[in-house]
Nucleic acid binder design. Sequence first.
DNA 1: GTAAATTACATCGCGCACGATCTAATTGTA
DNA 2: TACAATTAGATCGTGCGCGATGTAATTTAC
Lengths: 158, 158
Amino acid sequence: MKNNPETLWLENQICFPIYAASRMVTKLYTPFLSQLDITYPQYLVLLTLWQTDQMTVSEISHLVHLESNTLTPVLKRMQGKGLIERQRSEKDERSVIISLTEKGKALRKEAMCIPQQIIDQFASDEINAQEIHQLKQTLTKLTDILSKKEMVPLRQNV
Amino acid sequence: MKNNPETLWLENQICFPIYAASRMVTKLYTPFLSQLDITYPQYLVLLTLWQTDQMTVSEISHLVHLESNTLTPVLKRMQGKGLIERQRSEKDERSVIISLTEKGKALRKEAMCIPQQIIDQFASDEINAQEIHQLKQTLTKLTDILSKKEMVPLRQNV
DNA sequence: GTAAATTACATCGCGCACGATCTAATTGTA
DNA sequence: TACAATTAGATCGTGCGCGATGTAATTTAC
């Protein structure tokens, strides 16, 4: 079975469908986010801050599953745009607390219409709300499983 | 309903689960691909070429849903590693035909064991093969729908 | 109490993704 | 034939992702 030719077919591995779909969905959001002058990861950070303001970098990091080496530049650009403030925590000088500026808070109202418009774009005879819901559930479960898994450093043919 | 606070919650939009899961899956593949000295997109290109050798850039582009501005540098790096050859088509000088080198062809055998090992990593009480199969189907359907959709340049509150 | 380990964040380098734009080759049209 | 439109790739600039590593603050262990 491992030697079937189909083993390596593009569609038969999970890597390709999820990779392609993810980029497609990003593209779907992009025109909406451009209007707000933000990028996709910046939007995700804003989503977390709109839920809970005043979080440390590591708290945001855990929520969006992005490491500090990715988040730090994103947050700096967001600070440059005047969306957030960055200040060292007083009780732990290692931590940086991220808080929304008024501009950052105000952007929330602008973003309110995005989810419905995205759903409208999905509207299709081929795919329905129930299916999307199921998709989100499975993806979330998958992410949870994989994020708990410590990356075993590969041991082939031992 | 559009004004519910939950509207903008991280988990309630499709953007986040698919984005997080996609990066998690990429991370899962990475140690296996590192052993072959290739990256994730390079692996996808190889998968297509192992199925059909001698394709033009645009044919590969359609298969993996990557534009030439992304593919060109990827292919150049693969050429630098001696995995592929690039040659202008004789019947259409605009086209560039990508073909596997012997080294590129040989790599296929090394890659054969990857899919099963990925599946093993997924092994979990919480998620099963049937669920993964369903996931792939939905993601593929989603990609098809979105790739057919011409990006309507956003018309809000008109 | 102090050295070692851990933690929080930052820096660096590389390889994507992708919008915008360019060049050259081919096709369509009159 | 001649010229506009299209097509195939390439180039450029910006912004991620992330492995590896660095630095400073805090915690742990003895």
